[in-house]
């Protein structure tokens, strides 16, 4: 082989050497999140750090391309703080996996010293395409989550607000206000909760009921 051939051949190897690790890496990390529904929920006492870590995680492309929804709510009471990752409709057991995404999630969890019981923590959530089925009905008062209701738990829920009681009717993944002890009863006229993103607001009671 003359010098020219050698250069060409070595160039080929060099190029291959640059690409193969990439291919290998992409084969190893089998978790592909692009375009799929996901929900990454962190209950923490350190909001600033958690926001930074989640933002880094998302901008690294670990949550796929496209826009991501973000929500933030304080929760009242002592709550177990943790990091929960749901993909599609399945809870991901990232603590026992060793792919890229799982390793990074474990790192975030460690940096936030989770899991841990926290007084009045904040719940941060990154999510995409929350789908058409309601996973949880959240009740917030003055911007703080006071209770979480499973959409399958049919029944009347009595919520106590500033100007009296509000009775929430939950049935078959559907929620509406049955009655309220306020003057205008605007919340009763407001549309019901049928899909994630829907909400009901009772202004005098300062209650905000929304579905995820």
């Amino acid at each position: 082989m003359d010098r020219r051939d050698f250069l060409k051949a070595s160039g080929l190897f060099l190029a291959a050497g640059m690409i193969i690790p990439k291919v290998a890496k992409s084969m190893l990390s089998n978790r592909v999140i692009s375009s799929e529904n996901f929900s990454l929920e962190v209950i923490t006492g350190n909001t600033d750090l958690a926001v930074r870590l989640l933002e880094e995680f998302a901008t690294d492309g670990e949550l796929g391309k496209g826009s991501i929804n973000y929500s933030e709510y304080p929760i009242s009471g002592d709550v177990m703080g943790d990091l929960i990752f749901v993909q599609g409709n399945e809870l991901v057991d990232y603590t026992n996996s060793y792919d890229d995404v799982s390793l990074k999630l474990k790192e975030i969890r460690n940096k936030l010293s989770l899991p841990m019981i926290l007084p009045n923590p904040v719940r941060l959530r990154l999510y995409r395409n929350s789908g058409s089925t309601i996973k949880k009905i959240m009740v917030a008062q003055k911007g703080k989550i006071i209770s979480r209701i499973e959409p399958e738990d049919t029944g009347f829920y009595t919520l106590h607000g500033k100007s009296g009681k509000l009775i929430l009717d939950v049935k078959n993944n559907y929620a509406r206000v049955k009655d309220a002890e306020c003057k205008h009863k605007i919340c009763k006229q407001m549309s019901s909760i049928k899909k994630p993103g829907d909400y009901i607001t009772c202004i005098p009671n300062e209650l905000h009921i929304f579905a995820e």
Binding site: T59, G66, S67
Partner: peptide, 21 residues
């Protein structure tokens, strides 16, 4: 393509002000 497509976050906040939400 990956570099061009910047990740954007959509977020909301609400508050009772001026007698409405």
């Amino acid at each position: 393509f990956a570099q061009n497509e910047e990740i954007k976050f959509e977020m909301s906040a609400n508050k009772y002000l001026m007698g409405t939400e």
